[in-house]
């Protein structure tokens, strides 16, 4: 948050005298000012010699803050915004796209749940290849399990002519970052936020970041979740909201993967990370693979605009384009 001093340029009332008064109450930035009890501050200002001037300063501050508050949007504007800047990205798989009415939506957090070896990572890599190839966007892939395989992604690129040049162009739009604990994860995302913001300022528009993949988010959270303290849970929720904020502000589609845990003795499974996490993703998809053949079933567990429970069968062929192997 900006220090109060920055406001002096345009508002001479916030001078050194006013700032001294504020800093004597521990207020150094605009953020501190917001958090402080304004009535208490006004009451304290009464007792000072230059009470009027100080009170005027407080009023100016409050009006400045009011201007900065986010404007409201009506439904039409929201709809326009959605149609203009929140597109759907193809996941690279026809059946899934038709199930989701177009694919992964920008600005939303989509979660992919499934047991081990059900094709979550394959889905992620296919989506990365598809977005980088067909939507001219760049993809940021956060890998926690060393499972990112550029060779496998190259196999998903389906362009026909001039394969080598296309592969190079598509692959160089995908960047991968390995993260092994949740604290590094926060650093990475905050760094990403700063980078994106500076890109907006510089108007860098070539290959905007359109898809952020976290494979898998559950392996970062599992080591800290549970036990006696609630810190792990707080970190988990903070991570969820940071991801959603990124998605909303920069119109990125976010895809995260989660694993399953056994639920009771019946041999059934349910998504890991518990009830608190359940409310975070916009869309929740369940993947399951038949062991006898390589058919995948994708079903909607939760969706903001579609009924849940729909399923689709897809052949998540592990052997796509065998010639590269």
């Amino acid at each position: 948050m900006a220090p109060l001093k920055h406001l002096e340029m345009e508002n001479p009332i916030i001078d050194a005298c006013f700032r001294d008064f504020c800093s004597s109450h521990g207020i150094l930035t605009v953020e501190d000012f917001l958090l402080h009890d304004i009535y208490e501050l006004a009451a304290l200002a009464e007792r000072q010699e230059n009470a009027d001037r100080l009170k005027e300063g407080i009023t100016v501050m409050l009006s400045l803050i009011e201007v900065k508050c986010r404007p409201w949007l009506n439904g039409m504007e929201l709809l326009e915004d959605m149609q203009r800047s929140k597109h759907t990205l193809s996941s690279g798989d026809k059946e899934t796209d038709s199930l989701l009415q177009g694919g992964l939506r920008e600005g939303q957090l989509t979660e992919l749940v499934g047991p081990s070896s059900s094709g979550k990572t394959q889905f992620c890599m296919q989506a990365a290849a598809s977005v980088a190839e067909k939507q001219d966007g760049s993809v940021f892939y956060i890998d926690t399990g060393n499972s990112f395989s550029a060779r496998r992604i190259a196999q998903f690129i389906c362009g026909s002519s001039d394969a080598a040049a296309l592969r190079k162009r598509v692959l160089s739009r995908i960047s991968c970052h390995t993260v092994y604990d949740i604290y590094t994860m926060f650093d990475t995302l905050q760094g990403l936020e700063v980078a994106l913001r500076s890109q907006v300022q510089k108007n860098v528009n070539e290959y905007r970041l359109r898809l952020l993949i976290v494979d898998s988010i559950s392996s970062l959270i599992t080591p800290i979740l549970g036990g006696s303290g609630s810190q792990g849970r707080a970190l988990m929720v903070a991570l969820g909201y940071l991801l959603k904020k990124l998605a909303h502000e920069h119109n990125i589609a976010i895809l995260v993967t989660n694993h399953t845990v056994g639920a009771g003795e019946s041999g059934k499974t349910k998504p890991a990370l518990g009830e608190t996490w359940k409310s975070i993703p916009h869309v929740r998809l369940m993947l399951s693979r038949d062991n006898r053949n390589s058919n995948c079933t994708i079903s909607i567990l939760k969706h903001t605009s579609m009924p849940s429970g729909q399923t689709v069968k897809t052949t998540m062929t592990r052997n796509d384009n065998q010639q590269y192997l």
Binding site: R151, I174, C176, H177
Partner: peptide, 16 residues
């Protein structure tokens, strides 16, 4: 690259 430490997939393909 967008942030430090990230690699692009083309370089990774060659490394792999």
């Amino acid at each position: 690259s967008l942030i430090n430490g990230a690699k692009n997939a083309w370089d990774m393909l060659n490394e792999e």
